[in-house]
Amino acid sequence: MAKTELKNRIRRLRFDHEEMTQQELANRAGVTRQTIIAIEGGKYAPSLMLAFRIARVFGLRVEEVFEYEGPEPDQGSGKKESAGGNVS
């Protein structure tokens, strides 16, 4: 799979949490170790649910574990957004 635009601190966090192994993290997050390797290496962007589960293992919020590195969303599309967030 191609490199994702999602940066993460999982490797750092694992070492900060008593040098947790990839297998331990995988077991606690409910995925395979290969998936943890792929996420750490930036080769796989986890689903929102998995991102929340990984963050919960470390006792952190999602944005403290993952960081989006892609381009900013286009805000000059010319369409107005309503206060409720609905785009007409």
Partner: peptide
Amino acid sequence: AGQVLFDERDAEI
């Protein structure tokens, strides 16, 4: 025990 054999990435592949 406790090991996952098939997860969301495997399903995606």
